[in-house]
């Protein structure tokens, strides 16, 4: 069995001073695709932001090891350079910088960190052509400022395009399926599937099972009130789809303290 890429142990984390994650455990190894499902406010996005190192999301107890190193002391850009990628639920607009410029700067920073040569304009353009095809993206899209004026679908495609460029070891996709129509969902899922591989691990965070019809995970976990209350194979997602989250909220299902209270 390969060494874990990500090991989360008894993680407690808070956002804006409020405890959201309450003793979470999760291990992800290279080549695995994990899905975390959960209702609103179960702590899904908090988990994504704690992993990426966003200000305002603070781990208060527990550990996160990334390739054996203490992730929590690394600044966000160091995590990214080490191969941790977050596809944002709400991609940010950056006026004044084209997607092309942004991709080139990010790619070369990461390549430099990995001891690779920086790509010149010509090699970069060749790579752009190749990867853009994967997501059915045209050049006009790349010459516009990052996400500025993009539709919801375009923004999500742009996230996966960036993932395809930056070649991460661990890709976290935060509700990448939300707000997509079926055609857009298929394109995005196709891109994600193309990026599955032996050396890469993925963590899909989602509210609905829909995405998992197209990107079939190896493991499914249900997050409720800041803890994983159930883990299983891909069929767990179907059970959740059918029965909702209610049946997992019983006192036996390791749920939170307040649910247990009368």
């Amino acid at each position: 069995m390969p060494d874990p890429i990500l090991e989360i142990r008894e993680l407690h984390a808070s956002a804006a001073g409020k405890e959201i994650l309450r003793g979470m455990n999760l291990t992800i190894r290279a080549g695995e695709v994990h899905a975390i499902m959960g209702p609103n406010a179960s702590g899904k996005s908090t988990l994504a932001y704690v992993l990426a190192g966003r200000e305002g999301y603070e781990a208060t107890a527990g550990t996160i090891r990334y390739e054996g190193k203490n992730l929590l002391i690394m600044p966000p850009e160091a995590r990214a350079r080490e191969g941790l990628f977050l596809a944002f639920q709400y991609p940010i607009e950056i006026p004044g910088m084209t997607t092309m410029q942004f991709l080139k700067a990010a790619l070369n920073t990461i390549r430099k960190h990995r001891g690779l040569e920086e790509l010149d304009a010509i090699d970069f353009l060749a790579l752009v052509k190749e990867r853009a095809q994967l997501l059915d993206v045209d050049a006009d899209f790349l010459n516009r400022p990052v996400n500025a004026g993009f539709s919801g679908g375009e923004k999500k495609r742009n996230e996966i395009l960036q993932m395809a460029f930056l070649d991460p070891k661990l890709a976290i996709l935060d509700e990448t399926d939300s707000g997509l129509d079926i055609d857009a969902l298929k394109i995005v899922a196709g891109g994600v599937n193309a990026l599955r591989g032996q050396d890469r691990a993925m963590l899909l965070i989602t509210h609905y099972q829909r995405l998992l019809n197209f990107v079939v995970p190896d493991y499914v976990h249900v997050l409720l009130n800041g803890r994983i209350v159930q883990s299983g194979g891909k069929e767990l997602a179907l059970t959740v789809e059918e029965r909702g989250y209610g049946w997992l909220e019983g006192p036996d299902a390791r749920t939170s303290e307040e649910k247990a209270a009368p």
């Binding site: 190192g53 850009e77 990214a80 990628f85 977050l86 991609p91 950056i94 004044g96 910088m97 920073t109």
Partner: peptide, 26 residues
Amino acid sequence: IGEDQIFYCRQRGLSAEDAVSLIVNG
């Protein structure tokens, strides 16, 4: 340009300074 934009750039591996410099020069 606020914390959100800077964080987005940092998540892609750019330092805060490089992010600002890229945005401003663009």
